[in-house]
Design a protein around this nucleic acid. Structure first.
Length: 470
RNA sequence: GGUGAGGUGGCAGAGAGGUUAUGCGUUCGCCUGCAAAGCGAAUCAAUAGGGGUUCGAAUCCCUUCCUCACCUCCA
């Protein structure tokens, strides 16, 4: 598999000979997660599923930043301890992301559980003269790391001349960033240099090193983390280990809302709770994968409505495959099943090729939907036979599993109940009492089941609820 | 101002020198008791503008314009 590496600015081959170690920068838990977080996490979750579907072992670590000024400020506003606030939003995080069908990471290390590791790292950096103690904290000396700027392709001169760096007299250099900040208020921890809190970037260096070791395969996150967060992580980590930090840097593009950047000040943030309520998890996943991960995607009603149609096709396809006719009941079927076997194979290959080529999910989805369409198309004129299901379903299942899509299954009780209704409806239809028959169909659809009438039988389709009103 | 990524049909979105990607939408037919799903046809055609290289350019080079992101906390 090839992945575009932000650092080398070209596609690099992912080493899958051993365990693929992935570290993804998670969220700062001071508020609800939003669709932007969802996009990034869905991208990496899908990547992980893809690798695992090929039997590749993945170790997936995603952190929580649970100590930070934003958390402290928010906690003050709500008049609760900062750690209570962060733990509340961690709980919320899992509620949201479980519903998005995100596989749990192998570990979700929290910054506050790794203060000691960070202190050790900082100690070492001071010893090696990469860091210094100043009035307000311990700082990393950017000028000591001669490759600073290599990830974000920034020149130190440009950064210095940039007007926005605030002048801080206590730092040796305006570009230096905090490893440890002295603080007298809570939360604070003891350190050899004074009580305080860790800087933001150091946690990821400490925790990725602890859980994944040196020179792990993929370090990911949103594009907005390239600078300064990941740039600073590189500076610290490589100064500490003397080795390259991550082999591949993979960054997910931003989500815009109707073409605008999503921000609190614009008031256009879309929380995951909100979008889940509105569209449900599968549509959100499909939407997030409908553009290349590295490019921005635009969240809009129209885009999501289009995704509903896609999702309906998937549901329809699964309904068609759910109750196949026995082969002997179906007209000459061996050639069809052979056709489908070839079709499914070539589509499976296209799907894999697309993902192997810098994780091209739009192209992979294209293949996925062609198979869906093929089945739906066939089913509208012929009955689906067991041998077709046998050929198509495993391929479809593998792809759905990689994409993290979950079809709502109809329980046996539900099926039995509805089949009784269908019998009644069919009797009414035979008697040409169509209004009554449609009434029965309406009753069934109120239960969330759509009927698909075929020549000789009626299929049940369970539709995911979508509530488009805000 | 600096840096980076881009600009492809009504919309979404691939392809990276040589033949219609694909999907969605819209319109009209077909199928259906009616729907749903599906089929057929039409819309159906596009590569930001201008130069170049080439037998041939969305694709390579130059240039102009525009968009977005980052440079401050961000996924």
């Amino acid at each position: 598999m090839k992945i575009f590496d932000t650092l080398t600015a070209k596609e690099e081959v992912l080493d899958t000979s051993g365990i693929v170690r992935i570290y993804v920068c998670g969220v700062t838990v001071y508020d609800e997660s939003h669709i932007g977080h969802a996009r990034t996490i869905i991208v990496f979750d899908t990547l992980r599923r893809f690798l695992e579907s090929h039997g590749i072992k993945v170790k997936f670590i995603q952190n929580f930043t649970d100590v930070d000024d934003k958390i402290i400020n928010r906690a003050k506003q709500e008049n609760i301890p900062p750690l209570e606030l962060s733990s509340k939003f961690i709980t919320r995080y899992f509620e949201d992301f479980d519903r998005l069908n995100i596989k749990r990471a192998d570990n979700y290390p929290k910054a506050t559980d790794h203060i000691q590791e960070m202190i050790e790292l900082i100690k070492n950096l001071i010893e090696k003269n990469f860091a210094y103690v100043s009035k307000n904290g311990v700082y990393f000396s950017v000028s000591k790391f001669k490759e600073y700027g290599k990830l974000s392709k920034k020149k130190i001169e440009d950064l210095v001349s940039g007007a926005r760096i605030e002048v801080d007299e206590t730092k040796n250099d305006p570009l230096d960033f905090a490893l440890w900040k002295f603080a007298s208020d809570e939360p604070k921890w003891q350190s050899p240099w004074g009580d305080g809190r860790p800087g933001w970037h150091i946690e990821c260096s400490a925790m990725s090193l602890k859980y994944l070791g040196e020179n792990f395969e993929i370090h990911g996150g949103g594009r907005d983390l390239i600078f300064p967060h990941h740039e600073n992580e590189i500076a610290q980590s490589e100064s500490y280990t003397g080795k390259n930090f991550a082999k591949i840097w993979m960054h997910a593009g931003m989500v815009t809302i109707n073409g605008e950047k999503m921000s609190k000040s614009l008031g256009n943030t879309k929380s995951i709770e909100h979008v889940l309520k509105k569209w449900g998890p599968n549509i959100i996943r499909l939407f997030c994968l409908s553009g290349h991960y590295s490019k921005p995607i635009d969240y809009s009603e129209d885009a999501l409505k289009e995704t509903i149609i896609k999702w309906r096709q998937v549901e329809n396809c699964y309904a068609e495959l759910s109750s196949p006719e026995k082969d002997e009941l179906v007209r000459p079927s061996s050639s069809f099943s052979e056709f489908f076997m070839k079709k499914a194979d070539s589509i499976k290959k296209e799907f894999n090729d697309a993902l192997n080529s810098d994780f091209n999910t739009p192209l992979a989805l294209n293949a996925f939907f062609r198979l869906i369409k093929e089945v739906n198309n066939f089913a509208s004129s012929e009955d689906i036979s067991q041998s077709i299901v046998k050929n198509v379903e495993p391929v479809l299942e593998t792809m759905s599993e990689i994409l993290g899509l979950k079809i709502s299954k109809i329980s046996d009780e539900e099926r039995n109940t509805i089949n009784e209704f269908i019998k009644i409806r069919n009797t009414l239809r035979e008697q040409k009492q169509y209004q009554k028959a449609d009434g029965v169909r309406k009753q069934i659809s109120d239960m969330g089941i759509v009927l698909i009438d075929h020549k000789t039988r009626t299929l049940l389709l369970k539709q995911e609820k979508i509530c488009m009103e805000d």
